[in-house]
Write a protein that binds this DNA or RNA. Structure first.
Lengths: 346, 346
DNA sequence: TTGAAAGCGTTACCAG
DNA sequence: CTGGTAACGCTTTCAA
């Protein structure tokens, strides 16, 4: 027989019923066998499993969900991805979620406001839980999820909202950076912040300036607009324009992406890093490790952060009444060539 | 009873049946009314609509799918996101998909191989279609989708696989860049390629060298490893190490991210861009527009590409028998400061 | 150890 | 115009 059915007739879906008929058992038996119900005899289990494989059976996640189970879908609400840190986070989330059998459904991505349509999707698809990385968008989502009993975990954000959160110890990390720079002999500091309402940026600013205050110092504050390379670049230009006597000998930007902008601006205006100015950041994005930047920074423990975030989320999916929980993970100082020791002032 | 049920008892789901009972009609009527079936009287339609709003009804996408409809889910298969171009593409896809009522389900993201688990998800969640941006991963997916009758569209890839595709006219764009550089008076060229099996890189290499060949010239070929900043940087270093007499006066890298690496390496080794060497790329990622790079490049028409991709996908979701289609969109030369005219050799 | 049947929330078909 | 009912594919009682 030719059997050249290349244009395969979209063969009908293989379901538990198909298998049940083939095996001469009830569909419920098939379901149980395939799900490892201990009550099914080893013999039937194996027979059914064999048929399932032979027929290329794939359980239907939707039907399974409808019948009372979990969807296996987690909603992702992501802020702007201009900052590579969030891209790295997304990558890590996708990898770890897959390893746990969860599928990430992108509900939102970008700086703009959340649309009503998005909020709808959250409910219509029965996401088991939500992972949120955006500060600005968090309240709407957290609100809705709270009402619908969908657990929410915020990554890289602390919040007073009804949600759990995992983030770096921003205060402590920034303070450690300040102390490190002080120890290197720097005395004139600039602090490049971001105007966003993000807890992250705020805490880092605080941590840094508090640690300086403890040494009786106060940084020159440069606002960098939103947390972006361009924001950092603008701040760097303003810094380069200062009269040499007023120029800081160390800058700390609240995010790496801004620190890179600062560095580029300084160099472009003839200042050397680190010879003339030390530059430091926070996050440890991949770009910071490039030889051309070699940025000293506070490394965020990305992998553990995501792991913890998923732990929290899964725990609340299984046990919806668990109280919200806030996790802080300590960052690690990563020293590179963008900072250098300053000899005591002549 | 105090009725202080702050811990709201996860109020039961509002379904068509809830509404039907409340309105004293059949659930099928509710369904029809809510879906704008013209047979329902305006009166009942409004009454039902009002109740739906009042109760905060949300249709269940899963049940709807199970009952024969589309899931509204499109599977995303993404390659490595180290290259910002793909991040921008993701952002655009998410935005445009949402505008069309589609939800992106991330099936895969990253350089590593596709896991069996991923292939399963594709089937289990009944994705209506798939968008693929990764060269290496495409064949498995396209294969499976083909068998399951799920339409696939490749973005930024051409392929002989069973799928439609949308990409930039890589050959033409690269050739145009070559002619532009020739017109500027460059005569000694370097071509930084990538070893990946990606059609994109290959076509750009071909387009560039063919156009040079037409002028009787041949570029110095520098392999840049995988298409990454580091790959470009390595190529740039090798180039900087050449004796001045052999040094090219123009470099074309097959992707912006590599071109930036090349530029950084050249500068780090004391060569000026564009004074000593012109550098050009392909893609026009956001970084290329930074004043520190100001890279001359071929801009990919990202927005139209994604629009076309979704058009193709939707068309095939509604009409599965449409033949595969390949779309090529022309890129546009974007001139910036990384290239400059060379006076005729003294 | 297994079968039968109900139910999840929608839509679609067939009557009326 | 509207109601009843089956069907989508699965899990889960309840019986046997």
């Amino acid at each position: 027989m030719p059997s050249s059915d290349l244009a395969a007739p979209a063969r009908d879906r293989v379901t538990v019923v198909t298998i049940a008929r083939r095996a001469g058992v009830a569909s419920s038996t098939v379901s149980r066998a395939l799900n490892g119900d201990p009550r099914i005899s080893a013999a039937t289990r194996e027979r059914i499993a064999a048929i399932a494989v032979e027929l290329g059976y794939m359980p239907d996640a939707l039907a399974r969900t409808l019948s009372g189970g979990r969807s296996g879908l987690i909603g992702l609400v992501l802020g702007p991805v201009e900052n590579p840190f969030y891209v790295a986070m997304l990558e890590e989330v996708v990898a770890q979620a897959a390893a746990r059998g969860l599928r990430p459904l992108i509900l939102h991505l970008g700086a703009q406001a959340i649309e009503a349509e998005t909020m709808r999707a959250l409910q219509q698809y029965r996401v088991d839980g939500c992972l949120v990385t955006s500060a600005r968008l968090s309240s709407d989502i957290a609100d809705l999820c709270g009402r619908r009993g969908v657990p929410v975990v915020m990554l890289n954000r602390v919040t007073r909202l009804r949600a759990s959160s995992v983030s770096c110890d921003n205060l402590g990390g920034a303070a450690e950076m300040a102390r490190f720079l002080l120890g290197q002999g720097h005395r004139r500091f600039a602090l490049v912040g971001a105007d966003t309402a993000s807890s992250t940026a705020l805490e880092r600013e605080q941590g840094f300036s508090q640690a300086l205050a403890a040494a009786g110092l106060q940084p020159l504050r440069l606002s960098g607009g939103n947390s972006s390379w361009l924001g950092g670049y603008a701040a760097g230009e303003r810094m380069a324009a200062l009269p040499p006597a007023e120029r800081p000998d160390a800058v700390f930007a609240v995010s790496d992406i801004m620190a890179l902008g600062v560095m580029d601006a300084l160099r472009r205006h003839g200042l050397r890093v680190p010879e003339d100015v030390s530059v430091a950041g926070f996050d440890d994005i991949a770009e910071s490790a490039r030889p051309t930047y070699a940025l000293t920074t506070v490394s965020q423990p990305l992998v553990p952060m995501v792991r913890r975030g998923l732990d929290l989320l899964l725990a609340r999916i299984q046990e919806p009444d668990l109280p919200d929980e806030v996790t802080l993970l300590r960052g690690r100082l990563t020293l590179r060539a963008s900072t250098r020791e300053r000899p005591p002032a002549a």
